[in-house]
């Protein structure tokens, strides 16, 4: 498995969505790095993110970090390229239409993931319990998702 690019200085790896997640971890390990996920099952990085990155560390544990810094994908038939940045304030985060959406609105081609120095302890913020963090979308949320699908259809 080879990366599209490894940016060691920024601790970012650019990989193809078709890359195998376990092989990516193995390749990173050879470079002294890790994604630090508990997800070991054979699957592609794209499928893993489309299913909601099960096994990734909870974002509430380290609010200053993140999993995905940038990506190239297709949403509603449009090519979307978001170059990596630690954070941005440039409108809605369109990655919400790809992450955990099971391919409903589009697909990921490549992605910039945050990697960690192997063996380095990761920060842990004060405990937070999000009781509804695993809930199913409400009917209102689902209705909005349907409207977005329709709007993406008609923009083509």
């Amino acid at each position: 498995m080879s990366y599209v690019q490894l940016d060691r200085e920024s601790l970012l790896v650019h990989v193809d969505a078709s890359a195998s997640l376990p092989s990516l971890e193995a390749a990173l390990a050879r470079d002294g790095l890790t994604l630090d996920t508990a997800a070991v099952a054979e699957q592609t990085v794209g499928d893993w993110l489309a299913a909601g990155a099960h096994g990734a560390r909870s974002a509430w544990l380290d609010p200053c970090d993140h999993l995905v810094a940038g990506y190239v994908g297709t949403i509603g038939g449009e090519r979307v390229e978001v170059r990596p940045a630690p954070r941005r304030a440039t409108g809605p985060d369109l990655f919400a239409l790809l992450f955990g959406q099971h391919g409903r609105f589009g697909a990921l081609h490549t992605v910039w993931l945050r990697v960690h120095l192997a063996g380095e302890a990761r920060p842990v913020a004060a405990p937070f319990h999000d009781a509804e963090g695993g809930s199913e979308p409400s009917s209102e949320e689902e209705a909005l998702a349907v409207s977005i699908s329709l709007a993406l259809e008609t923009s083509r």
Binding site: G100, S135, E141
Partner: peptide, 20 residues
């Protein structure tokens, strides 16, 4: 429409669209 959007650890969530 009055809508409540929420974060979900493994998605799906439309919340990041309204933020920003």
């Amino acid at each position: 429409d009055v809508v409540t959007l929420r974060q979900r650890a493994t998605g799906p969530s439309l919340l990041p669209l309204v933020i920003g």
